[in-house]
Simulated scan of single mutants.
Amino acid sequence: MEAVSKVYGRGRGAVAALREVTASVPRGRFTAVMGPSGSGKSTFLHCAAGLDTPTSGTVRLGDTDLSGMDETRLTELRRKRVGFVFQAFNLVSSLTVEQNITLPLRLSRTRVDADWLAEVVARVGLGERAGHRPAQLSGGQQQRVAIARALVTRPEVVFGDEPTGALDTMTARDVLTLLRETVDDMGQTVVMVTHDPVAASYADTVLFLADGRIVDSMDAPSSDRVAARMTRLGAWK
């Protein structure tokens, strides 16, 4: 992202959600994005992932400039090159685990690689649940399905928007460990928006947002250091 700003509304009612944000996310790394409520975290993710168009500035995925793309091309890019994991699992209740995982491939009319599918299902620990439907799974298992669905297209980057926000502490730890393993073992790139210092401690780097700007970053974060930095973000000038 280069000098990305996002303004909602016009005139006196305009709200600047992002203000000339410049940031780069390295391949094969786990990056967390944190900030107080209203700091621009979700807008950051939506602009970076091509879900929303910046008011100004440029967004690139690898060598591809998203700025000039129409919605049809953005949709195609998101299907093939980007994975998403949200707080709400967004699974289709009438489909099995395997059918939910392969849904992005079917939507893009891409052949399912049976070996890769088996590996992804095994990695998220759902080998014995492939024929189950979401209602037969725990919340943590449903989020594992969502992660597998994000990975099955072999995306260049996986974006997580509060992916553990609806989970209890122990289940959240399992899901965060799984995301960490996708980076360490599979070379995946993960960008996660979170409000939880413990969740952020699983990342390689934390970017801190306040008032629509990146105000700090932290490598090799610990939950205590992240929490301490968060308490001072609101006072940033």
Rank of each mutant, 00 (worst) to 15 (best):
Q87I: 08
R133G: 07
S223W: 09
D63N: 14
V183Q: 09
Q136Y: 01
L207Q: 08
V92G: 04
G127W: 03
L51Q: 01
V206N: 03
G28I: 03
K80N: 14
R225Y: 03
G50C: 10
R154A: 08
D63V: 06
T53Y: 03
V152L: 07
T169W: 05
S108F: 06
G13I: 05
S222Y: 12
P36A: 12
V82G: 04
S56M: 07
V145I: 10
D185T: 14
V152H: 01
A48G: 01
H195L: 10
L233G: 04
T55A: 13
L45Y: 02
S56F: 00
D216E: 15
V145Q: 10
K6C: 05
P134T: 01
L91D: 07
A148N: 09
T231E: 11
A122E: 11
L126I: 15
V7I: 13
T189K: 12
D168E: 03
V190Q: 14
P36I: 10
R12M: 08
M69T: 07
V59P: 12
V183K: 06
D185A: 13
L77T: 09
Q143L: 08
G165C: 04
G13K: 11
D70L: 07
V15R: 15
T96M: 05
D196L: 12
L18S: 03
E98A: 11
V145C: 07
L209Y: 02
T177D: 08
E2H: 14
V25A: 11
E128V: 08
S67T: 15
P36S: 14
L117I: 02
C47S: 02
A228M: 05
A23M: 12
S222N: 15
V25N: 09
V97P: 11
N100S: 06
A118L: 12
R73A: 15
K237N: 02
V152S: 00
V15H: 15
K41R: 10
V183P: 13
R81E: 15
Q87W: 08
T177V: 11
L77V: 14
V85T: 11
T189F: 13
Q99L: 04
V7G: 04
L45H: 00
V97W: 05
R73C: 10
M230W: 09
I101F: 02
V25P: 06
L167H: 13
E76L: 09
D174E: 15
V97L: 01
S201M: 01
D63C: 05
A130C: 03
M170S: 15
A235S: 13
E128I: 08
D196I: 02
V191C: 07
M170R: 15
A135M: 09
A32V: 04
R144G: 05
P134H: 00
V7Y: 04
K80V: 04
G28S: 09
Q188M: 13
F208E: 02
R129E: 04
V82W: 00
T169G: 07
C47I: 00
